[in-house]
């Protein structure tokens, strides 16, 4: 583990019955990095995210964040340590407004007092570009706005590490650029970002370093150029 590693994943293994979703995967994310995690469908990307955020428990290996071992910690404890995630399929609190959605995260993850929720929530919505929809019901948002809400609510937990799980799937190319701009802006603000994405154009443009998973194993690691030219990666995506 290098000195500036924010997140250190060591030999993490996760099985579902007889199926090994993650097999001894190592990866290291440095503070301030824009980290891409890619791989074909079923390669274990989302399982990895679930193990990091704590919604699944890994069977082997360990995950260390800021020098703290995460094993046995519940998702909300990890959130309070500074790990936030968005969900591939948006999970808004549908009976609340957009601002109230952020309020839940602000109040519970950061202990923001009720009187400050409005101000700090609006500041985050301004950054994400969702301020006009603050009073809208979260269930009534369009797809792109729901993705933005996912990111905004994750940001409301004041994370050091933001994991964006396919925030752009199914969006048009201008919308993809929209989300990319937001992620770049957040990264400039000092937040380390792990991006999981199928849209290669976006991952390659965004990431400074990429790890490729295939069938639960890490098959490649490097900068975007190295990854594009890696024969293993090509085989994983296109077959022999």
């Amino acid at each position: 583990m290098t000195a500036d590693a924010l997140l250190d994943v060591r030999a993490v293994t996760k099985r579902f019955g007889g199926f090994t979703a993650l097999d001894q995967v190592d990866m290291e994310v440095r503070a301030g990095e824009r980290f891409g995690l890619i791989g074909p469908n079923g390669s274990g990307k989302t399982t990895m995210i679930n193990c990091i955020s704590g919604t699944l428990a890994n069977e082997g290996g360990e995950i260390v964040f800021k020098g703290v071992k995460l094993d046995g910690k519940k998702p909300h404890q990890r959130t309070r340590l500074g790990i936030a995630r968005s969900f591939q399929i948006p999970k808004p609190f549908r009976s609340l407004t957009v601002l109230e959605n952020l309020g839940i995260a602000l109040e519970f993850a950061t202990g923001t007092s009720r009187s400050e929720v409005q101000e700090r929530g609006m500041a985050i919505l301004e950054t994400i570009g969702l301020a006009e929809r603050a009073r809208a019901n979260a269930g009534s948002l369009t797809q792109i706005d729901m993705r933005k809400l996912e990111l905004a609510r994750a940001m409301a937990t004041q994370p050091e590490l933001l994991i964006s799980d396919e925030a752009m799937a199914g969006l048009s190319s201008t919308e993809v650029d929209d989300i990319l701009d937001i992620l770049f802006k957040l990264n400039e603000g000092g937040i380390t970002i792990i991006m999981i994405e199928h849209i290669m154009r976006a991952v390659m443009r965004f990431s400074t370093r990429i790890v490729v998973l295939d069938a639960g194993r890490k098959i490649a690691e490097g900068n975007p150029d190295e990854i594009v030219n890696d024969p293993e990666v090509e085989r994983a995506y296109l077959g022999e």
Binding site: T55, P75, H76, A84, P92, F93, F108, R153
Partner: peptide, 9 residues
């Protein structure tokens, strides 16, 4: 799950 990940115990 979203609640838990937003910091709700």
């Amino acid at each position: 799950i979203a609640a838990e990940c937003a910091g709700v115990p």
